[in-house]
């Protein structure tokens, strides 16, 4: 089972990217599950994904933090043992620190995870205001990423894209960085970066 953690603040384009990716995976006849949590109005995204007939698993949380990781692990265990999926995409809340999720995944004693990839999506139109208020969260989402996606490349100005790139590089100098529009089918370059185990 391969895991893809898709981080990014609400409205950054995570669900759009996941839909594109899910369609690409389905075309290859692979089994996919999408795990979302309900914090932060992701319920709306959840409905969109379900309407598109994707297999969506919701995480329930009594409070914002601690129950969530336990529920994530339980869900992954179930997907692993009972459904034999090839890929699980974890879409944490926009305000989740992916480090918390990666730490929790390390606790999956005995379970086999073939690969874990963390991608973060940055919205170049809102990066300034998000950094102003949520610098630690945005920083940790970028720092931990194996792949940085700058969304809305078709809507943002070159200056906004550059600012987003600069911010990303400040926190993570090494991860591949791809500006994309996310409209329409997933760009093949992005698909390769998100699913390196396919090639």
């Amino acid at each position: 089972m391969h895991l893809l953690v898709m981080a990014g603040f609400l409205g950054s384009g995570k669900t759009t990217a996941i839909i594109g990716l899910a369609n690409a995976v389905r075309e290859r006849d692979l089994k996919l599950a999408i795990v979302v949590n309900e914090i932060g109005e992701i319920g709306i995204d959840d409905q969109v994904l379900k309407q598109l007939d994707h297999d969506v698993w919701e995480l329930l949380s009594g409070c914002i933090c601690c129950s969530l990781t336990g529920d994530l692990l339980q869900t992954l265990d179930k997907l692993d043992s009972e459904y034999d999926v090839d890929l699980v995409i974890v879409e944490p809340s926009g305000a989740a620190n992916p480090q918390q999720i990666i730490d929790a995944l390390r606790l999956r004693s005995g379970a086999i995870t073939e690969s874990i990839l963390t991608a973060v999506i940055i919205d170049p139109l809102r990066i300034n205001e998000l950094i102003e208020i949520l610098q630690p969260l945005i920083r940790s989402q970028i720092e931990i990423a194996d792949l940085i996606i700058i969304s809305k490349a078709d809507l943002a100005s070159p200056g906004e894209i550059n600012k987003a790139k600069k911010t990303a590089r400040e926190f993570n100098p090494d991860a591949p960085l791809i500006p994309v529009s996310l409209k329409g089918p997933l760009e093949s370059g992005l698909e390769k970066e998100l699913l390196p185990w396919l090639t």
């Binding site: 305000a95 950094i131 208020i133 949520l134 969260l137 940790s140």
Partner: peptide, 13 residues
């Protein structure tokens, strides 16, 4: 204290 945590909010705010 949940959403006002240091790991989320910028120091100035």
């Amino acid at each position: 204290g949940w959403r006002s945590a240091s790991s989320l909010i910028a120091p100035k705010i």
